[in-house]
Design a protein around this nucleic acid. Structure first.
Lengths: 234, 234
DNA sequence: CAGCTTTATTGATCAGCATCAAAGAATAGA
DNA sequence: TCTATTCTTTGATGCTGATCAATAAAGCTG
């Protein structure tokens, strides 16, 4: 059966690089998967057997140390691509943060197909370059920013990314639900859960944000938040 | 004139994806540049006008905050590719750490040429994926490791990468010259120069390394260093 | 090789964030 | 609805790494 013709991310995922015939060819190699929140699709260090497109839901990419310290190294949304093509290992865990739907392919099938379809590889290249840019900016955040700066930048970043569901981008959202708990925010920012909680409350006290429920954030003073994000001292 | 036929990185740079005719075609679009140590080739945020291959020398990619805090987000070696194809801006500075030779192309020329040569794009994709993996591992280092762990990992990483000049990889080197001063090490690891200096001396006192001159490192006890790298407490 | 500049080391102190601990909400399940 | 569990907040304390400051060593230049 051909899921692709009804796929909601058909025109946003890398599949958009393909014509109708080619999509159905790729579609024959793909398999739908349902993931429940918390379920891990790919384990760090395991032989890289599959890659996937995210159809629905949000997933995290994470690595951890032997004593349990964890760092989230990426977050993927509907239409994003998951996995490590042309490589023998995936170096991070891929875990669903919400219930999710993904369309998986065997790595070897996908690699072969991609090599035969330059437009697909090109789309993949553009995505990978953009992700590299994003990841490099995160290095500055992790290496050089204070806790307040990290959290302010995180909130601004989220306000710009979390409007995806309806796809139409009309400026950053000032109210949104985070797909993360406090511990996950800490794992993204290289902080502890306590520090995240405290700084978030500081922002609330300063009137920069409101936190009507655990995961909901309302930005009340975006300029103020941006000032903190640039330089906590000013 | 055709530099490519005598280019020392001809078979290691992305150009290796091309046949003789195509290389000379690309070569006609390229220009040689000499850079002196400290010279900046591309500025953060500037319109992305050029990309390049590194022929000789070592360069850093860095971003900084308005108050001067800096984070090095990448280091490139001979045969590596520099710049942001298919994008309007380069998000980081590219600065020579040593005197260097690069082969530059106008972004638009390169983009056009690449789109016409899938094998070249494929090489670029493989490099970009590998660089993304490396950068993501660095997130764990910056976000979750202690100063000692950071420095131990850094030294091990350097011992594995700095043997490039002669190209033949026969295991990690136990003695090498860093292409960085202490401040640059600090900017790579998200530390201060003082902390780098102190931890390096600790390692010396523990007999893990020797530092015969400022930039020279000799690993005396690799296992010990690896133990520190994994988990400072053990 | 003298004098200057840059870079690195060493020491003292401080602050930010982590850690440890406990109480308080929210959520889920019976 | 009540209870058990999980997640979050809040408080007290301590440590790691930053900051400030001064000295020392290494490179440069003439």
């Amino acid at each position: 059966m051909d899921h692709c013709s009804t796929c909601v991310v058909r025109n946003r995922a890398i599949c958009a690089a393909l014509g109708t015939d080619e999509v159905s060819l790729l579609g024959k190699m793909g398999r739908h998967h349902k993931l429940v929140a918390g379920q891990t699709l790919i384990w760090e260090g395991e032989d890289s057997l599959l890659v996937a497109n995210v159809i629905d839901g949000i997933l995290k990419l994470s690595t951890s140390m032997s004593d349990g310290r964890e760092q989230i190294v990426g977050v993927v949304y509907p239409s994003d691509f998951i996995g490590r093509p042309f490589g023998s290992q995936t170096q991070y865990n891929v875990t669903a943060l919400t219930d999710a739907h993904v369309c998986t392919f065997s790595s070897s099938d996908f690699d072969r197909f991609a090599r035969e379809h330059p437009d697909l590889e090109h789309k993949l290249l553009e995505r990978t370059l953009a992700e590299l840019d994003r990841t490099r900016r995160w290095l500055l955040l992790l290496g050089r920013m204070t806790a307040s700066e990290k959290i302010a930048n995180f909130l601004i970043d989220m306000s710009e990314r979390l409007i995806r569901p309806d796809c139409s981008f009309n400026g950053p959202a000032n109210a949104f639900d985070l797909p993360f708990g406090r511990q996950q925010i800490a794992d993204i920012l290289g902080l502890t859960i306590e520090t995240v909680s405290r700084r978030l409350n500081d922002f609330k006290a300063q009137g920069l944000i409101a936190v009507p429920s655990r995961r909901r954030i309302e930005i009340l003073d975006r300029d103020g938040l941006e000032t903190v994000a640039e330089n906590a001292s000013q």
